[in-house]
Amino acid sequence: MPSTSFEPHNHRQCIDTALARARALAGEQGFRLTRQREHVLQLIWANHQPVGAYQLMEQLSQHNGKAVAPPTVYRALDFLLEHRLIHRINSLNAFVGCDCPGVAHPGQFMICRACGNAHELSGDDLTRALNQLAGQQGFVIDQMALELTGLCATCQEHAA
């Protein structure tokens, strides 16, 4: 994987790596990664822009040559979320691939408002700091999703 989703790189490598990790997890954890689920995961990893369920439905319909019903896509998304292969970007009602699949961790993202790419932040330091800040207020975090919106370095250069 590239050091950041904002840098130009070969998305085919992202797709291949994500599929290999998903297949390995399926073997380790004993879940079934059907062709349809793999295809949805592949479409999500096609770039680093969050993709909505209806966009996925349209892409699947074009690929299959016939209409794909919304429940088909939502079932695949629910499965991929359950097995921690993707994240949901709440503010966009869309989905992105998970850089650390199969491991429970909060979704923390930088989202470029110009190019639309999302980059997953990793590291326990941020999570610890947020939990500490919450604890100082007597608050216990049950679920964490952090979405930072701004401009990536490439888009800043183009804007200048």
Rank of each mutant, 00 (worst) to 15 (best):
Q49S: 13
P71Q: 05
G123R: 05
R113W: 02
M144D: 02
L151H: 12
C14F: 12
I141E: 08
L85E: 09
H83T: 04
T154D: 13
K66M: 11
Y54L: 12
C115V: 01
S91W: 01
W45M: 08
N93A: 13
I86F: 03
Q13N: 13
E28T: 06
G107I: 01
V103A: 02
W45H: 11
L43R: 15
L33A: 09
S5R: 08
N131H: 15
R12D: 06
R84N: 06
A134R: 04
M57A: 13
L85W: 12
E58G: 08
L81E: 14
E28V: 06
S61A: 15
G27K: 08
I89W: 04
M1L: 05
V68A: 07
R37F: 00
L81Y: 02
M144G: 01
A104G: 09
A76Y: 00
Q42N: 11
A94Q: 08
R128C: 06
A20P: 01
G107C: 04
L25K: 05
D99R: 05
A46C: 04
G30R: 15
T127V: 15
Q36N: 03
A104F: 08
R128H: 15
G135H: 12
C152G: 00
R35P: 01
C112V: 01
L19R: 11
F109P: 07
A145W: 03
L130V: 00
S122N: 07
V103T: 14
F79V: 01
R32H: 05
Q42A: 14
V51W: 01
T4I: 10
C112K: 01
G30F: 10
N93C: 05
H39S: 08
